[in-house]
Design a protein around this nucleic acid. Structure first.
Lengths: 336, 336
DNA sequence: CTGAAAGCGCTTACAG
DNA sequence: CTGAAAGCGCTTACAG
């Protein structure tokens, strides 16, 4: 169907390798020849077949990117960061959504390796055992993101979900809160969520505060789920003083529910979130939360991958980009 | 580096074509042979090279997906819809973000054609002339989404942005609003935004309402931009009765700004949005908006592409999935 | 049910 | 500066 290098070569009266040079290293070709070839390329509307090119060079410019879901703007920010670095370098993103299933992730990893991706980016450090083995065995560079608490297969870029939650609880404690509830994201196939929950529990214990099942809830990723988990928690623990939600969407859903119920925030109840999405600073009252360098994680992950693809070592293999607790109007504040 | 079909074949004591059969059509191979080969595959950790496979079959299972930006949950929903249909069919998504640049889009299209994508999905009908020619000339199936007002290169799946805005203005008119402002998204390289603006203008004219520059603003995609465009508009048109925003994010940003300024919604000012994101129904007052089948657009686009890849004709080539004006508390309502 | 030959469309190395 | 030969790792079509 579409024209090949051969067709162009014939038309231009040169060999196919010369056409290849015009495309890949034009400076090595005489001006006159180059012009002849470029004319022929335009004339037949030649589009190089990068499949054939990849087979010959044994390399691709494709990066496999694995996220749990695309319908969550926090991962979208990270993907944008990667795209902004990789696209100008001629790389394309092969996107896979695991749907928080380790099995799906494993089969996507195999598909990306089959595609001979130049590199792979995962979300989190948790993988199916077979998938982890695959990643460890292949010589394809792998960067794991959004988590640094654990041993990466190759290298990792992110922050400590555990520490971030721990520090938020400390911040709430300093502001005077004692009875603090926590609404977690589902922790299945989500090491980040599991570690956030652990961070909350550890901090509560270390501060000598009461913990227990009745102060904890799990909610899927939606405003509605945040609203109903608030209702749940309040009905069982009516004297809870603050609720810390594992993400801003849940927290903001709860904020709206408070408004509907006439619960004053922060006077009657403190609300804290996690992520610092744009909405968090715009909602009224503005949300106390943890700021995560989502976009930056994407950029750094991409640059790390580029380094590894060039065969450079990455030191240190674990890259902590940090986080920042942001206190706003949804909780009381104690300046210290 | 990694094992090839040959390596597996040697180990299993068969020819490479037999290994190929075990992978692609196992039922054609004798049970004993298949087992021997599968053992060999597991033993060397063989991962098929789909680059080589694609070159031989002259086909790939890659779909090129072009969106303006990933950091907008509305496109994320559409991508998820596509992924949900394509992944189970063995297709992978090659994602390209044009950043609302027709030039970038054009070069991404070339890259996807070079990758010999099995199909291409674009957002909108507007492309650089050269890109449109490429799309029209190639025999790669192309589905254009989010817009049906115009001639598709191949086929389109979406709704009429023009009609949707037209009907929202009619709805506001019926509810008693006369002085209606409009805040548009930037219309550069965005035919959907341009047609939304046109829909507003046409409806205003047809209803005999005053229009003009002072009733219109343009704002980038953020809550903050929505808030400041509200301020802008109110300062120049203090007696505006309702403002229609080209997307929910802008509208909700404006809603918060009203709360800060003590402008009561809908008593002092009506606010309407576009998209019906989850937040629109949760925010207080809940937002009047236009519901778009974002996820469904993705699914239908994917199925259309699958049809076209199988060589079937798509009839009709323009698939109108419709929209729905949803009246909520942010505007007055007149039941009719 | 299994295999030997040819080919997909490029690039790598080697000549000249 | 330009080219002929070989090869990348698969699959297609043809035999047997």
């Amino acid at each position: 169907m579409s024209a090949t290098l051969q067709d162009v070569a014939k038309l231009a009266g040169v060999s196919s390798i010369t056409v290849s040079r015009v495309i890949n290293s034009p400076e090595k070709v005489a001006d006159k020849t180059r012009e002849k070839v470029l004319d022929a390329i335009n004339h037949v509307g030649y589009i190089p077949n990068s499949i054939a090119g990849s087979l010959a060079t044994k390399s691709t410019r494709i990066i496999g990117v694995l996220v749990p879901t695309i319908t969550n703007s926090i991962f979208a920010d990270t993907i944008t960061g990667m795209s902004d670095v990789l696209t100008p370098n001629g790389y394309k993103l092969l996107l896979g959504a695991s749907g928080y299933s380790l099995e799906t992730e494993a089969s996507l990893i195999d598909a990306m390796l089959a595609q001979r991706a130049a590199g792979i980016v995962t979300t989190g450090l948790q993988h199916a055992p077979a998938a982890r083995t695959r990643l460890a065995t292949t010589d394809t560079p792998v960067v794991e993101t959004w988590n640094i608490d654990g041993q990466p297969v190759d290298c990792s870029v992110g922050f400590s979900n555990y520490r971030a939650c721990y520090e938020m609880v400390e911040t709430l404690f300093r502001a005077g809160y004692r009875r603090i509830g926590f609404v977690s994201a589902p922790i299945t196939a989500n090491d980040r969520a599991a570690q956030r929950l652990q961070g909350y529990r550890s901090a509560m214990n270390d501060l000598g505060l009461r913990t227990g099942r009745s102060l904890e809830r799990e909610a899927s990723f939606s405003f509605r789920a945040g609203a109903s988990s608030l209702g749940d928690l309040l009905s069982e623990e009516s004297d809870v003083e603050a609720i810390f939600f594992a993400n801003d969407i849940l927290a903001i859903g709860a904020l709206f529910e408070c408004q509907r119920r006439g619960v004053r925030v922060p006077e009657d109840l403190g609300i804290a979130g996690f992520d610092d999405v744009e909405l968090a600073s715009q909602v009224i009252p503005a949300l106390t939360t943890v700021r995560i360098p989502r976009y930056h994680i994407g950029r750094v992950a991409a640059n790390t991958l580029l380094q590894r693809i060039q065969g450079e070592a990455v030191n240190p293999p674990i890259n902590d980009l940090g986080f920042q607790v942001i206190q706003r109007q949804s909780t009381f504040t104690k300046p210290d």
